[in-house]
Computed example of a mutant assay.
Amino acid sequence: MEALPLRRVDTPATPAGCRGRLVERDRLEWRLPDGGDPAALAQDFLTAHGVGADDLTRPATGRPNGLCGAALYVSAAAAATMAAAAPGAPTPAPALPDLAVVVYDHATTDDPAPPPAADGPWWVGDWTPSWTPHQHAAAVTAVRAAIGRGDVYQVNLVGHAAAPYTGDPRPALARLARLPGARYGGTLHGPGWAIGCASPETLVAIEAGRLVTRPIKGTRPATAAGRAELLASAKERAEHIMIVDLERNDLARVAATGTVTVDELFAVRRWCDLWQAESTISAAPADGLGLADLLRALCPGGSVTGAPKLAACDVIAAREPVGRGAAMGALGWIAPGHLDLGLTIRTAAADGHLLHTWAGGGITWGSDPDAEVAEAAAKARPVRAALTAGCTRHR
């Protein structure tokens, strides 16, 4: 995947009126071996370009020098680094950066963004998982044992699969944005890599002057019976409430004292052919809150780690055979006076040779190993179907 033609900017949460009018001004790409603090690097880079990431509470005063905003991507390993947590196993896609910040100007009428390139031949081979269903189930059993010992209360386990491809992967990755419920649908790419996202989950946004996070926990098939079962499940509700409490605590670290509220609890919403339970938690930001401190407080997302967060990250690092790469991190848009980052569940990536997908779920004492394996497969199925649609050959 080299020297690909330019495409219109379609980063998740990019303002709708800007998507066809953006020209890249500058970018920062960082990988774990580079060293340093990715949260501080992102904040300093954005502040140097006039985004004002050093104080997210400062009112927007216009767009300096034509600046529109920036795409911000954080891998799962970078998110763990921000929290001083175990980074996990090595990534299966080392071509991808662990942090990418891409700053955009608005194009002038004389310098329009190029139209989308025509889709060429596309082929995807067989998916090879990084663990078998039996190994996945054994990991669930091991997590239940850790819960029984009192090491953790909940751990999110994530599996990975890869498939070879030929052709330009970006049209396939862009199809993820059209999946039903993809609140953070979109793409981001660089030399030799590309990411596609169909996430429904808000990691953190600033809305009406408040910090907002919307953790998702609890899944059932999108049928009438599935909805009733999700609402009645004591196991799913307990799993969900644990993460709500964790996210309340995370927000409180960067919020004005006494302002954290749960605005909506256990609302059932649809993503593709699944019902999922979502809550909304918000808080007034502390005076002078900068992006770096916000990322350190919220990353990695509690719904994809577990509780307590650092202990859960230790279990994840010991049990998952490969790293989470582009998944379970963050991807979205930041501009003066604006921040909207999705948590990269339902996310796929491409390097020069392979497509990568990840899927998993939260494990509690009440988890059934076989049911957890089936739930992860159900989450991965629509993503893989979108990626393989339109194949000229498909083994």
Results as ranks from 00 to 15, higher is better:
residue 3 A to D: 15
residue 4 L to D: 03
residue 5 P to G: 12
residue 8 R to K: 14
residue 9 V to Q: 02
residue 11 T to F: 06
residue 11 T to A: 15
residue 11 T to H: 04
residue 12 P to C: 12
residue 13 A to M: 08
residue 14 T to V: 15
residue 15 P to N: 11
residue 16 A to L: 10
residue 16 A to E: 15
residue 17 G to N: 07
residue 20 G to P: 05
residue 25 R to Q: 09
residue 26 D to F: 01
residue 31 R to V: 12
residue 43 Q to N: 09
residue 44 D to H: 10
residue 44 D to L: 13
residue 46 L to G: 06
residue 47 T to N: 05
residue 49 H to N: 13
residue 52 G to W: 01
residue 53 A to T: 10
residue 54 D to L: 03
residue 54 D to E: 12
residue 56 L to V: 13
residue 58 R to A: 15
residue 58 R to D: 07
residue 59 P to W: 01
residue 60 A to H: 09
residue 68 C to L: 07
residue 71 A to N: 00
residue 76 A to D: 10
residue 82 M to F: 04
residue 86 A to C: 09
residue 90 P to I: 08
residue 94 P to D: 12
residue 96 L to G: 00
residue 97 P to V: 13
residue 97 P to L: 04
residue 98 D to I: 10
residue 100 A to I: 07
residue 102 V to L: 03
residue 103 V to D: 05
residue 107 A to D: 13
residue 107 A to F: 04
residue 109 T to P: 04
residue 111 D to V: 11
residue 113 A to C: 10
residue 115 P to V: 14
residue 118 A to D: 12
residue 118 A to C: 05
residue 119 D to W: 03
residue 120 G to Q: 12
residue 137 A to Q: 13
residue 140 V to K: 08
residue 142 A to Y: 01
residue 151 D to T: 15
residue 151 D to G: 15
residue 151 D to R: 11
residue 151 D to K: 13
residue 153 Y to Q: 13
residue 153 Y to M: 14
residue 155 V to R: 06
residue 163 A to G: 11
residue 164 P to G: 09
residue 168 D to K: 08
residue 177 A to E: 07
residue 178 R to V: 08
residue 183 R to G: 07
residue 185 G to E: 00
residue 186 G to E: 04
residue 193 W to G: 05
residue 193 W to M: 14
residue 194 A to D: 00
residue 196 G to Q: 05
residue 197 C to Y: 04
residue 201 E to Y: 08
residue 203 L to G: 02
residue 206 I to Q: 12
residue 208 A to P: 06
residue 208 A to L: 00
residue 215 P to A: 09
residue 217 K to T: 08
residue 220 R to H: 14
residue 225 A to M: 01
residue 227 R to N: 08
residue 230 L to Y: 00
residue 232 A to I: 15
residue 245 D to C: 12
residue 245 D to V: 09
residue 248 R to P: 08
residue 257 T to F: 05
residue 257 T to V: 13
residue 261 T to L: 12
residue 263 D to S: 15
residue 269 R to V: 15
residue 272 C to S: 15
residue 278 E to M: 14
residue 281 I to N: 03
residue 281 I to S: 07
residue 282 S to I: 03
residue 285 P to L: 00
residue 285 P to I: 08
residue 291 L to S: 01
residue 296 R to N: 13
residue 296 R to A: 04
residue 297 A to H: 01
residue 297 A to Q: 06
residue 306 G to D: 00
residue 307 A to N: 05
residue 309 K to M: 06
residue 311 A to I: 08
residue 312 A to C: 14
residue 315 V to K: 08
residue 316 I to L: 08
residue 320 E to I: 06
residue 321 P to T: 03
residue 325 G to M: 02
residue 326 A to G: 15
residue 329 G to V: 09
residue 330 A to I: 06
residue 331 L to N: 03
residue 333 W to N: 07
residue 334 I to P: 04
residue 335 A to S: 14
residue 336 P to G: 11
residue 341 L to W: 00
residue 343 L to Q: 07
residue 348 A to V: 09
residue 349 A to D: 02
residue 353 H to M: 06
residue 354 L to M: 14
residue 356 H to K: 10
residue 363 I to Y: 04
residue 364 T to Q: 02
residue 367 S to P: 07
residue 367 S to K: 00
residue 370 D to T: 11
residue 371 A to M: 01
residue 372 E to K: 14
residue 377 A to K: 06
residue 377 A to C: 05
residue 378 A to K: 03
residue 381 R to K: 13
residue 382 P to D: 00
residue 385 A to Y: 02
residue 387 L to Y: 03
